[in-house]
Amino acid sequence: MKIKVLGSSAGGGFPQWNCNCRNCDGVRRGTLKATRRTQSSIAISTNGDDWLLVNASPDLLTQIAAHPELQPARRARDSGIAAVLVMDAQIDHVTGLLMLRERDTPLPLYATDAVWQDLSSGFPVGPILSHYCGVEHRRIALDDAPLAVAPLPDVQIDALPLSSKAPPYSPHRNAPERGDNIGLMITDLKSGKRVFYAPGLGAIESHVLAAMREADLLLVDGTLWTGDEMIRLGLSKKSAADMGHLPQSGPGGMIEVLDSLGTGRSRKVLIHINNTNPILVEDGPERRVLTEHGIEVAYDGMNFEL
């Protein structure tokens, strides 16, 4: 099983188009040792030709251009993207679906009922695409039944409901539904290796912690370093918790959670990194802390094979 990190940043990318925080200003000027990133998405394949796109970011066309495998050119119109799975209905995870409108067949789209409701109403990607390629909604049931995805033979996907809020445009924004946000346990049935993917984690519930303990590779929420990061920088009035993210540092933070899993069992990688997060500075003290704890920082183009 092959996994490609197409985008490793949180919403807005890095640098964010309108942000002049120390990180964004520094990467533009070349005064910080930091790498530009597009908005978070991964792709999964077993044969290297047919890929499941997990989350379709607004940067999808740039990501396709950076990864020739996603444009194999086997015929006049072609794509290596055989299907898409979306983990929530947030703008930075679904806007890229509109970029796939030129398909000559309906787009297979895996989503929970709650997410599909949002994509049929508050942010009506489904109805919009019905005027172009069309969409085949394939239901993620959340009933503990493993999900078999057509382009991934010998791969099992288990969806885990996570605590979160639906997007601001969702009809149930103020009444969260099971399935508004999910994590994925992705298992290669031949090797037995497992990947836990959760770019948005606001709370470590018991079923989430159990899944993390079983994984050989963890790709988890790396959005913010501290709970008050955005407030302290004067960029938002919302804390990490308000935004549905667990900060890395401090009591109960992601570093502490990952440390509790022990060493040597799994590879630990942070993804969905906000432009303000100091871990983006490659020679900074926060990055050194992560290294001391055996934690890596995802970057665009990072590859895994399990």
Rank of each mutant, 00 (worst) to 15 (best):
I128L: 15
H67V: 14
D154Y: 12
Q63V: 10
S121V: 06
L290T: 02
E69N: 02
R37L: 06
G13Q: 00
T95C: 12
L233C: 02
G244M: 08
A210T: 04
P168G: 14
D92Y: 05
R194M: 12
N181M: 12
M302L: 11
K165Y: 15
D216P: 02
S121D: 04
N20K: 11
S79C: 09
P68M: 06
A66F: 04
D118I: 15
E292S: 14
L235E: 11
Y132W: 13
P151H: 10
I186T: 07
G294R: 00
G12A: 01
A111E: 13
T95R: 15
T291R: 14
P72M: 08
A215P: 08
L98M: 14
G80D: 03
T35F: 03
L97P: 04
R178Q: 14
G7A: 03
G301E: 05
T35P: 01
H93L: 12
H207K: 11
E282C: 04
A141S: 10
D144G: 02
P171I: 13
G222L: 01
G222N: 01
D216A: 06
N20C: 06
G134T: 07
G96T: 03
Y169V: 11
I44V: 15
Q117M: 11
A73L: 08
L100D: 09
M185C: 09
P127I: 10
R213G: 03
M212E: 00
T31Q: 01
I271G: 02
G30F: 11
A66R: 10
H245T: 08
P124F: 13
R77S: 13
D228M: 12
S206M: 00
S206H: 06
P15G: 01
L201G: 00
G126M: 08
H272W: 01
A166D: 08
G30D: 10
R28Y: 10
L224F: 13
A215W: 07
D158W: 05
D300E: 05
L70C: 13
L235H: 13
Q90A: 15
R173Q: 12
R28G: 11
V86L: 03
V195I: 04
H272C: 01
V149Q: 12
D259A: 05
D158Q: 13
A141K: 14
H245L: 09
I273T: 02
H245M: 06
T263Q: 15
D180T: 15
V195Q: 01
